[in-house]
Design a protein around this nucleic acid. Sequence first.
DNA 1: TTGAAAGCGCTACCAG
DNA 2: CTGGTAGCGCTTTCAA
Lengths: 348, 348
Amino acid sequence: MSQSIEQPADGTPGRTPARAVPTSADVARLAGVSRATVSYVLNNTSAVRISEPTRERVREAARELGYVPHAAARTLRAGHSRMVLLPAAHVPIGPLYSRFFNDLQWALRRLDYTVVQYGSVGLAPEAAARAWAELRPAAVVSTGEVEVTPEAVEILRRSGVKAVITIGTRDADGTHSLVLDQPGVGAAAVEHLIATGRRRIGVVVPEEPGLGMFSGPRLEGARRAAGAAGATVVPLPLAYTEESAEELAARWPGLALDGVFAYNDEYAMLLMRALQDAGTDVPGETAVVGADDLLLGRLLRPRLSTVRIDMIGGHELAELVDRAIDGTAGGATRRLLSGSRVIRRESS
Amino acid sequence: MSQSIEQPADGTPGRTPARAVPTSADVARLAGVSRATVSYVLNNTSAVRISEPTRERVREAARELGYVPHAAARTLRAGHSRMVLLPAAHVPIGPLYSRFFNDLQWALRRLDYTVVQYGSVGLAPEAAARAWAELRPAAVVSTGEVEVTPEAVEILRRSGVKAVITIGTRDADGTHSLVLDQPGVGAAAVEHLIATGRRRIGVVVPEEPGLGMFSGPRLEGARRAAGAAGATVVPLPLAYTEESAEELAARWPGLALDGVFAYNDEYAMLLMRALQDAGTDVPGETAVVGADDLLLGRLLRPRLSTVRIDMIGGHELAELVDRAIDGTAGGATRRLLSGSRVIRRESS
DNA sequence: TTGAAAGCGCTACCAG
DNA sequence: CTGGTAGCGCTTTCAA
């Protein structure tokens, strides 16, 4: 074959010769056509008509060489990518989110986007934004693990990112913001407790870092709801360990609380267990309400009352992303997701 | 300014003018130097000495323009990327994995790799491999959610991927394989049950798709261990729903099992709850063993016995990835991670 | 110490 | 219907 003449300098001479990775030029040579034709055939370019025999020759050559197009080259040439970047969460928020994530990814891929999660643990907002911007994604969909500051948005914008979508506790300007009504979650729980006759209500505040952006607003909402009804709210710091829960349960009698909103179902389980072990009757002495409606909660005894949180569907969000990228969605929008409601079981 | 002459065709004429994204050429122009100099300065190229005033001018210009390098262009020019691709799991495997994931990402970033998770839900092995290959990552680290077939490995190899690392239930050839000893997990559980006097042992097999690659080998290991001791193993299909668990619990007496390995702690909780509700005494009539050592298990009553699974550390793996990329780790290796041991609590 | 220029792989224009 | 070719943004060799 003619290629053998320009045997390329081999990268790894030691072991398997590892021929250089095939390019569209290699495909063209093997098929006896031009690189342009290869591009037309492999991309099914409709603006140009290639004879069927030629198409087949090209496809066969590509198959034989194991040709895979080079995304970076395509991006460079096109001037834009079809990548949607999701800053990856450092805290797994449970089945609710993971289901949502899967739906989103699946829907975006149907729209021909390449979905990529970028781990951004421990990066400052601007540093993270720069790292994301290097990849020149078409859109960034942030689910709240890294704060999206105005500076970050500006960095992304200037790097050609077409759309920034945030899902979080408050709107980030210049973005399409989906605001989860966290205060509403706390308020729903507390209103329910009050409606069932409770007056002194504890609100668990996780000590784990990274949950503050959720727990703060939930506490705030709880306070508002309690204030409106003349009830009392007591913040209860709690780490996700048995020791911390035991310690809290030990001083429970002194706190004289008749109800508690435990942040979510997992903390609720932790706390409820500790309370029961310490001899506190649930819901007799203290009612407990979690959040997220995990299967877990139905397995506890008493069955756990919970706040089911309103969440946007993955498919719906994918469409928003798509419209935001092609400009149809306008410059910046804000949408409040507030539909949290209590599911009463046996613990309240 | 001179740029105003060649005002580029604006992408989105409607709203904010959105000036074209700045390139290193723009930085060079603003700083009054050549593009080469810009590259030298911003990459701290040591082979070349640039005067301090020039460096400062370049950096200032970059800052002013909000310049962010274009990863695709860099990759294209360099002929290789520093991207490590992790096919993202479609099933959240719990805190054990998520901790591992974070460590791995963090460690890889310290080694100056760009870590990217690629959602590959529902793709055939070869299709997934091609999708990954388009990004020309330096390495692919598969944690077992998509099967890595020999064909897939070949596709990746031919696309210049330097290293393929698999963590899974068996070794994939041509890769660096870390084999989790799943049979060992089942065996450990069953041996423990036998040692504590059980003879007819159920093994839960989750009906959820995607877990088969774990549950199958665990069942196999359980069978081997039972066979060696003359005990009996009964496979128990179970979906992760209350109904499925209730149904299983209802026919429990007929099964006449005195022990059960419940796949993991979550299924164990589900089953144990259903058994207790149906009036079966745990561990009196039936002993229950889970796996993964979740905090959850310690909160149950009786406290759940569990198999703690041996796992490689994220940092350690990051180093393997690094050596595999630069060739130091050799062509293909295999390492068995077998160190599972039972933590006995109260349910067995 | 700095600049000019080639070229990575690909696509889209324009000629033939 | 097919081929030639420019050029996306970047790094790096070679020359000045």
